[in-house]
Design a protein around this nucleic acid. Structure first.
Lengths: 356, 356
DNA sequence: CTGTTAGCGCATTCAC
DNA sequence: GTGAATGCGCTAACAG
């Protein structure tokens, strides 16, 4: 059997309470006693049983998730994943609150962060906007020793504990590589469609894309970036204009949201040369477009994985314990029509028997 | 607070022991009593605290992992991941045994499965070989109510509980799509390099690849499949011969292992037309070749994820509880030079402070 | 068939 | 400063 607190107590010649005090770094133990206990712990190779500790503490983890509101399909999918996690909270000992704030709105986000802080939760996960005010608000949380995880879009320069999202520079580079190679011999400029340069993930994707296009595929000019504010209607209008203005466009990289507008604009094109289209985030719209051949590649981040990872990391940080690093790396999924996963409406797997 | 067994007992007017009996579907309870308790459970919305239950049981999960031996880099990486899991066994309450058997050897695998069965573990994970004898051996385990998860290569027609691996047909299709599009206008036949048609994953990849090549890229003839037995030396010789015999080869799809041999053969080619190369599994060798531009795409399955998933599923099956379905879907990673993840020698993430 | 009781590993009152 | 006792939610002897 693995050693318990009793074994430590026996080995160190003290009582359970004293062992507990040094284990949880509480005051009221003489230095000599403390050292004696610490040596015993080291010697017998004790590792704390977190489950038992949580049981004894009746520990629950109050967590706050702050997400953008609006009808952005990806963000709504993200929220759905948080709600799925809420459904598991009895098992996972979490108590999760979801807060939504208008997208690209710094003041609203700061207010939400400060309000979360007032409730002194065990951790906060937030889809960040890159701004000094937001950095300051996050650092206020950290000053209160509240762990913070950024979700989807990171916040460089802040004291956030962890980022649960993909490497967006690599995403942009990958998009460029695929674009360049899919274009093959064809000529023509490439258009880039973004949401807003306010959020770091969009900026990073653009950087990565530009770098590789310039490095390896300089034959294709890049058109000025179209900022569609992730708004389908606006995106449709702007993309329509761009396609009309430059009918020779060979490729489009959509690095933000509002892809419904992009798809609508593409559908309106008739008898035109084929365009290679690469977009982000697998939603019902991009999935259908991929199947129809309107979109060639979808780069995706798994919202469910991001949410589960954020929760694991926040709990671990709250307890001051380590996590499995590789498990928390969010991968960039690359979907072609050929490796599209089956749609899943349920999060559950049958418990028994049935072959899947 | 959430309801406990005591609450059930009180609500149903019975004792703790009786509640426990119906919760764990043990015999010795009258049907009326059982129904009374079940109704109470339903009514107050009880959910069992698995952590507390495991604590009381001092539950450990003896698990057996059966992997092919030999110097196949991917399989050694898989084994390393199992050993990493062994390092976590104190926390995860597992007791994992690793058994290695010669690759592509049915009798050895059957013997290993039967031996595992003799130890009546809580679950078995196995890299399967497609054979009636192996199916029978797996079904013997299931007959003993021992959960079985196939790892990497599945075993259709068996009663295995779950498959922890990628969709290999989709992998083959994806390889063909990328191959066809990367080849663009270029002409020339495509060579396929496999390990052995004995294992299902290789056969499925080949099927998927052939289908899409025939459907969309029939301009490229497929050369006869080269079976390299996942042996680098043999692979090098066979690929060298193929390249010499057909200097106009435009692409190579390596769907098995032994890629060291492939890379060596490619390196020996000088002043020849470029070849589009797509290979499976990210190892130190394929990673280097990707960086050097010798390989264009690496399709990968995350061995760490597969092992962790297998363990989660086996534990869940042993307890008869559900798992998060989406979390157990193993994704096909597509790596270009541009989205190669950083090498990680450690599995740990720092517990405190440090920015990553 | 059903109930009583002790204990899993740990945290937390309280006395001393 | 330190120790003894009690309980977290659940399981498992052992009585009845």
């Amino acid at each position: 059997m693995r050693p318990t607190v009793h074994d430590i107590a026996a080995a160190a010649g003290v009582s359970l309470a004293t062992v507990d005090r040094v284990l949880n770094q509480r005051a009221g133990v003489r230095t000599v006693t403390r050292e004696k206990v610490e040596q015993a712990i080291e010697r017998i190779g004790y590792v704390r049983d977190v489950a038992a500790a949580n049981l004894a503490k009746s520990r629950v983890y109050p967590l706050v998730f702050i997400l953008p509101s609006g009808d952005n399909s990806f963000m709504r999918g993200l929220e759905e994943q948080v709600r799925a996690a809420i459904g598991r909270s009895a098992v996972e000992r979490t108590d999760i609150t979801v807060v939504t704030v208008p997208a690209f709105n710094v003041e609203a986000l700061v207010a939400a962060l400060d309000e979360a802080r007032a409730g002194s939760p065990a951790g906060v996960a937030v889809v960040a906007i890159d701004s000094p005010d937001v950095i300051a608000a996050v650092d206020r949380l950290r000053a209160d020793r509240i762990p913070v995880v950024t979700l989807v879009s990171d916040l460089a320069g802040s004291k956030r504990d962890h980022f649960a999202g993909v490497d967006n520079i690599a995403a942009g580079r990958t998009a460029a590589s695929l674009m360049g190679r899919f274009l093959g011999g064809r000529s023509g400029p490439v258009a880039v469609l973004a949401g807003s340069m306010l959020v770091r993930d969009h900026r990073e994707r653009l950087d990565g894309f530009r770098t590789v296009m310039a490095e390896h595929f300089s034959g294709h000019a890049l058109l000025p970036v179209i900022e569609g504010q992730d708004d389908p209607a606006l995106v449709e209008r702007l993309v329509g204009q761009a396609l009309a203005a430059s009918p020779e466009i060979a490729g489009i990289y959509s690095l933000g949201a509002g892809n419904r507008g992009l798809i609508a604009a593409l559908k309106r094109r008739v008898n035109a040369a084929p365009v290679c289209v690469i977009a982000h985030e697998l939603t019902q719209h991009t999935r259908a477009a991929l199947n129809d051949g309107l979109i060639d590649v979808v780069l995706n981040q798994d919202a469910g994985h991001e949410v589960r990872s954020a929760i694991r990391v926040l709990k671990a940080k709250a307890d001051g314990v380590a996590v499995i690093g590789a498990q928390e790396r969010i991968r960039l999924d690359i979907f072609l029509k050929d490796n599209l996963p089956f749609e899943q409406d349920s999060n559950q797997m049958p418990a028994e028997g049935r072959q899947d």
